[in-house]
Each structure stands twice: as C-alpha cells, then as structure tokens.
Computed example of a mutant assay.
Amino acid sequence: MQNISNLLNNLQLYIVIGLVILVIILLIMNVIIFKSLNRLERKYKKLVRGSSGKNLEDLIVKYFDKVNDAQKESENVKKMYDNLNSKIKRCIQKISIVRYRAFEDVGSDLSFSIALLDANNDGVIITGIYGRDESTTYAKPIDSGMSRYELSQEEKQVLNECINKGI
C-alpha cells in the first residue's frame, strides 16, 4: 500500500496534467454537442412552425389526406381525358378539298369534292358537280378509308389526300 501511495505522489503532476487535458477535451466535446443541439433545435422549430400547438402527427396525417385527395382528383381527370379523347377521335379531324372542271364547256373550276374524316378515317365525301344547266350535290359515306360506292378520280384524289394528312 505504501508503494502505491509513493507511486501516486511521484506521478501526481502527470495525473493532474492528464486530468486537465481530459477536462479540456470534455469541455470541447460539450461545446460541440451544444452547438449541434442548437442546430437540431432550430431545424425542429422550422419543422413545427405554424402548427399553432397542433400535434405534428396530425399535420402529417392531414397532408397525406390531401395527397390522397389529389391522387383521386388526378385519376378523375385522367378518366375525363380518356373519355374526351375517345369522343374527339370520332370528330372530323381531316379535311381535304379538290376543285375541278367537270365539263369542258363550263368555264371555271366550279365543281368540287370535299372529304371530311375522323381519326379512324370514317366520314363522308361531298361532291358538287356544276354544269351550265344544272348543278348536283351528293355525298358518299366513308368507312375506314373506303367507300362502298364507286368513286370518281377526283373523289379518290381527295380521299387519299385526306387520309394522308397528319392529325
């Protein structure tokens, strides 16, 4: 026991210096921890700011509900878009017209053929033949780009132009 006491007395200066260094290291670590804690506290206050005393969990649940509502609304808008898109495909989207002289004895290009088609190439060709004594207008239905009636050269031309138009 005496030996240990003598040894401690001899090393007392070194022990004190070691403890002082340890205290300084602990103080530095303490300052770093307080700075980190302050940063964390500022971030926390930013996170819960404006919550007016409400529970943060309630706020998060409310935001998730809003996200779910937005998702449902988005799905409804997509359904409406698909519905409108299918209706639009049945609307007239391609138009082509050809004017020509049906008879040699008539002066100008007063006869015409006009094709009106939807996205599926369904529609009608309307032809007006102008003559000196009479004028005739008639229509031929078009299904999938084809007519079940015989088409004149001008009607075939206007149909091909109309089919080849981009939407």
Results as ranks from 00 to 15, higher is better:
I125F: 01
S108D: 14
G145Y: 00
M146V: 15
P141G: 06
I28S: 06
D105L: 09
G123S: 05
I163N: 01
L84Y: 09
L117S: 01
D69T: 09
I129P: 02
V158A: 03
N160I: 09
E154G: 02
G107I: 13
G107Q: 04
I167M: 04
L84Q: 01
K43W: 03
Y138L: 09
S108K: 08
G123M: 11
S113Y: 05
V158I: 13
L84P: 03
V31G: 03
N3V: 07
L22W: 08
N164S: 06
K54V: 13
E154D: 05
I21H: 08
I92D: 01
C162W: 02
G123I: 10
S108H: 07
V158K: 06
D109F: 00
G166R: 10
L159Q: 02
I60K: 04
N9K: 08
N120K: 11
I28R: 07
Y149L: 11
I28Q: 08
K43C: 06
D133K: 15
Q157D: 04
I126V: 15
A115L: 08
G18E: 07
D118F: 05
L40N: 14
E41W: 11
V67G: 00
R101F: 00
K156R: 12
E155L: 12
G107Y: 02
A119W: 04
Q12F: 05
I33S: 08
V98T: 13
Y44S: 13
D122H: 10
P141D: 02
V67H: 03
D82S: 07
I129W: 07
M29I: 11
E161Q: 06
L116C: 08
L8E: 10
C162F: 06
F112I: 15
I167K: 01
S108Y: 10
A139C: 03
I21E: 04
R49H: 01
D65Y: 06
P141L: 14
N68F: 05
Q157W: 01
L56G: 04
E73F: 08
L11T: 13
I114G: 11
N9Y: 05
I15D: 00
N76K: 13
I129V: 15
D65K: 14
L27N: 04
I21V: 14
I28F: 10
S5W: 02
F64E: 12
I167N: 00
D82I: 13
L47P: 02
L26R: 12
K54E: 09
Q2A: 05
D105H: 00
G50N: 07
S113R: 06
R148M: 10
K45A: 09
I25G: 13
V20P: 04
S144K: 14
Y149V: 06
V16W: 02
L116R: 01
I92V: 15
F64M: 09
N68P: 03
N83S: 12
L7K: 12
V23I: 15
N164T: 11
G145L: 04
A70E: 01
N9F: 09
R148G: 05
N164H: 10
T137A: 12
S86R: 13
S147E: 00
S144Y: 02
R99N: 15
Y44H: 12
M146P: 01
E155M: 09
G166L: 11
K89Q: 11
S135H: 09
M1K: 11
K89F: 02
L47D: 00
V48Q: 01
S5E: 06
E155H: 09
F34N: 13
I114K: 15
L116H: 03
R49Q: 03
Y81G: 05
